[in-house]
């Protein structure tokens, strides 16, 4: 099982440049089509399940708008 992750986009900063959408290896980020933020941009958001919390969207984000979280994998019992 790949690790599970999620992102939180701070919509105050997002300018919908789309670099995270372009670079996301899982292709699970999109621009929200039906809402805009205070500056009038369609902010980025997770549109599908499958985020692994790799953090590439945060690395390419020019606005430092993305926080990335990853679930801590359960350690298998020895001998299990």
């Amino acid at each position: 099982m790949p690790p599970k992750g999620r992102i939180e986009v701070n919509e105050k900063y997002c300018k919908a440049c789309g670099l995270c959408v372009e670079e996301c290896p899982q292709e699970v980020i999109g621009l929200a089509a039906n809402r805009i933020n205070a500056k009038g941009y369609h902010p980025a958001e997770l549109i599908n399940a499958g985020c692994t919390g790799c953090g590439i969207c945060a690395i390419v984000c020019p606005e430092a708008a993305i926080a990335v979280y990853r679930e801590i994998a359960k350690v298998k019992e020895p001998g299990a």
Binding site: K4, R6, G55, A58, I59, P62, E63, A65, Y69
Partner: peptide
């Protein structure tokens, strides 16, 4: 998610202002 770890968050050295740079400008 269940118990989770922070992979990335906005660095504390940046102020909480939204920048004036154009969308996609790599100055950011």
């Amino acid at each position: 998610l269940g118990e989770e770890t922070i992979v990335y968050e906005r660095p504390a050295t940046l102020t909480d202002l939204s920048s004036h740079y154009c969308p996609g400008c790599t100055h950011g």
